[in-house]
C-alpha cells in the first residue's frame, strides 16, 4: 500500500498527536464525562489508521505493528478479567468494586469510583488493539503477501 501526497503527510503529522491526546483524555475521564473506554480506544486506533493511510504500510512496517496490536488486545482483555477477579480474591462476588470500598474518593473527581477508571483503561487498550489489528489485516495486506 502506497502513501499519499506531501500535503496529507504534513497534515496528518499535525493531527495525530492531538487525536492521540484526545483519546487518552476520553479514556481517563470516562467516568465523569461522555466517552469512556470504547470511544477512547477507537480514537487511538483511528489515529494509527490515519498514519498508515497517509504514510503507506511500508513505512509503518506492518509486521511489528500487528504483533503489538494483538499483544495489546490480549493485555487489555486480561487486565479487565483480572480486575473482575480481584473481587473474588477479596472474598466477595465477581466484579466487586474493591477499591471503592477501601477509598471511595469524592464523586466528580478524577480519582474516584474505584475500579471503574481502571476498567475503562483496560477496555481502551483492548478496543484500540483489536480495531487496529482488524484494519491492518483487512485493508493493508494484499492477496498472497506475507505478513
Amino acid at each position: 500500500m502506497k502513501g499519499m501526497t506531501l500535503i496529507v503527510k504534513q497534515i496528518s503529522q499535525l493531527m495525530v498527536p492531538s487525536i492521540f491526546l484526545l483519546g487518552i483524555y476520553v479514556i481517563l475521564h470516562g467516568h465523569l464525562t461522555p466517552g469512556g473506554g470504547f470511544a477512547g480506544g477507537i480514537l487511538i486506533a483511528g489515529c494509527f489508521v490515519l498514519l498508515v493511510l497517509a504514510y503507506g504500510s511500508d513505512e509503518v512496517k506492518s509486521e511489528v505493528r500487528k504483533w503489538r496490536a494483538s499483544f495489546s488486545e490480549s493485555l487489555g482483555i486480561f487486565m479487565f478479567w483480572f480486575l473482575a477477579v480481584l473481587g473474588l480474591v477479596q472474598g466477595s462476588y465477581f466484579f466487586y468494586n474493591i477499591i471503592a470500598k477501601i477509598n471511595p474518593g469524592h464523586p466528580g473527581q478524577l480519582f474516584s469510583a474505584g475500579i471503574i477508571p481502571l476498567c475503562n483503561m483496560a477496555i481502551g487498550i483492548e478496543v484500540a488493539g483489536a480495531l487496529f489489528a482488524i484494519f491492518i489485516t483487512l485493508a493493508v495486506l494484499k492477496a498472497g503477501e506475507k505478513l
Binding site: G30, H31, L32, T33, P34, G36, F95, N97, A100, P104, G105, P107, G108, S112, A113, G114, I115, I116, C119, N120
Partner: peptide
Amino acid sequence: LTGASNLVAAVILD
C-alpha cells in the same frame, strides 16, 4: 452506589 458521575459508565462497568 458506584461513585461515577457518568451513569452510562456506571451501568456498563459496575
